[in-house]
């Protein structure tokens, strides 16, 4: 069995105990998306404010396990201030780290070369791959952010 220490890395537990960017934003100008993991009931709510192609602010809410909460927190810290294009590259790189095949119907998942992208703290979530059931906990916030961004782009 893989070590639980690979899953529950200190940096993950730190984001779980002290989440960054937890809260809400006014909609509008922000857009809001909800994500559910139907298997376990985890819920993530993402608020994102995009202006001129840049993620100016992001907050998250909802409830879930340490992995889903920490992943939301780490994602919010990683994408705040980045362009939507950079986000797509990060998202792609994160999904490859999670061993998720690119979706041919989703250009965002096949754009960019993930090898060039620095994941930084997000690398800590790599251990989740050894616990396949938990991969969805880690990717839920990214799916939800993608929805929120699409919403923002549709309304801008």
């Amino acid at each position: 069995m893989p070590d639980l220490e690979d899953l529950y890395r200190e940096i993950i537990l730190d984001h779980y105990r002290n989440p960054r960017n937890r809260g809400e934003l006014d909609t509008p100008p922000a857009t809001r998306a909800e994500g559910f993991n139907p298997l376990c009931g985890d819920e993530v709510i993402i608020y994102v404010q995009v202006a001129d192609g840049v993620i100016e602010d992001i907050k998250f809410g909802g409830q879930g396990c340490s992995i889903s909460q920490a992943s939301s927190s780490m994602m919010s810290a990683a994408v705040k201030g980045r362009s939507v294009e950079e986000l797509q590259q990060l998202n792609h790189a994160f999904r490859s780290m999670m061993s998720i095949e690119p979706d041919p119907d989703d250009p965002a998942s096949t754009n960019g070369n993930s090898a060039d992208v620095k994941l930084g703290d997000l690398e800590a979530l790599k251990g989740v791959v050894k616990f396949p059931v938990r991969i969805k906990c880690a990717t839920l916030s990214w799916h939800t952010l993608t929805q929120a961004i699409e919403e923002a782009q549709a309304t801008s």
Partner: peptide, 20 residues
């Protein structure tokens, strides 16, 4: 969180369900 509880229990061979 129950997912985390169930994950830790699994290490000891204890199978419980976590979720809704």
């Amino acid at each position: 969180h129950p997912h985390d509880v169930a994950q830790v229990l699994d290490r000891s061979g204890v199978c419980v369900r976590a979720g809704h």
